[in-house]
Design a protein around this nucleic acid. Structure first.
Lengths: 184, 184
DNA sequence: GAGTAAGTAGACAGACTTGTCTATTCGGTT
DNA sequence: AACCGAATAGACAAGTCTGTCTACTTACTC
């Protein structure tokens, strides 16, 4: 850990704890201990816990799409890419121990903070656009128009991730993939 | 408030606060103040905050299906009933100010408690069975088999409720209803 | 009338919370 | 050599958290 800079170490540690334990159940003291930094260093880089939360959302957003790009890079064909979205999520579930969507979790436990909402919505909007772009590139079965198919895939995925968090299982995302396949 | 019994008043107040503010952001002291009861009365009926949480989940489960039965009672026809599920959820969103699914929220902010998981899963399992029973009674378009259609409707609803909580809007459940209509 | 369960009021413990403050050190840059 | 940003260690404030405890009252039952 000691190689990376202090600010990065704070944000990495906070991110891990916020996701694993929950934002409200993670205290500043625990972050300080586990990141092995001084109290004043944390407050130097992040004046309040809320600032740390916003930085966590920004970082997670960046990492999320970064990992998505990496995963999708070798996959050819819009239809295959749409189906690969489900595989990507299953792989993430496994890695993250089925604790669900970072953004959903934060919305569920923080009350009505506009800056939080803005970031969460920006993330979901971008993912929906990502799906939409792929849908337009496919010549799917036209059971649904492009917009409706986009929304269907998006909602299936969101629902499946939420259920995956409740049942700690990849079954729902896998089912959602099969359902998606029948529309494509 | 003073008419109802003490235990009920505690549970009603705790339920409201747990949902509106979040479980971790609601302290025992606030429940005591707002329910207007003595500290010892709370600990008499609910030995710990966790007991109160479990009672909240049980109560919410009972109320949820009670309200569903009431809503569905005048609606005839399995197809109409399936579509009415979406209307039921929209009505709840409006009443609850779009804060999402009670059970999802609790899973998102409590860590790995088996008793919590059991209750949350029991709730979702029962709702899925409810949908399945209706699906079997319809002669739908057979684009999907009964089990797959059930899962599709279930996941669309769950995803739409989650998005409704992020965007504080009924749009997603309404879109999900239109999508559902095209399979029925 | 005695006994019991359910209620009230409030003090208290002990731990934890976020955030501030002082004092000091280290490593560059001017 | 002087300065400065970034880091360290740790005390501290002021509040909150859950849960326990004592002492007392009320209401109902045997």
């Amino acid at each position: 850990m000691r190689e990376t800079g202090v600010k990065d170490r704070i944000l990495e540690t906070a991110s891990r704890l916020f996701y694993d334990q929950g934002y409200n159940q993670t205290g500043i003291n625990q972050i300080i201990d586990e990141a092995d930094i001084a109290r004043a260093s944390l407050y130097h880089h992040f004046p309040s816990k809320t600032d740390l939360l916003l930085a966590y959302l920004d970082r997670t957003h960046e990492l999320w799409f970064g990992e998505l790009e990496t995963y999708m890079q070798p996959i050819a064909g819009a239809r295959e890419r749409l189906l690969a979205l489900f595989d990507f999520r299953v792989r993430r579930q496994l890695k993250l121990k089925y604790k669900g969507c970072h953004f959903n979790k934060i919305v569920a436990e923080t009350c009505e903070d506009q800056q939080v909402f803005d970031r969460v919505r920006a993330h979901k909007d971008r993912f929906r656009r990502y799906i939409h772009d792929l849908v337009r590139q496919t010549d799917h079965r036209k059971l649904l128009d492009d917009e409706t198919l986009t929304e269907t895939l998006f909602l299936l995925l969101e629902g499946a991730i939420a259920m995956g968090a409740m049942y700690r299982s990849p079954d729902y995302v896998e089912k959602a993939k099969r359902i998606a396949g029948s529309f494509l």
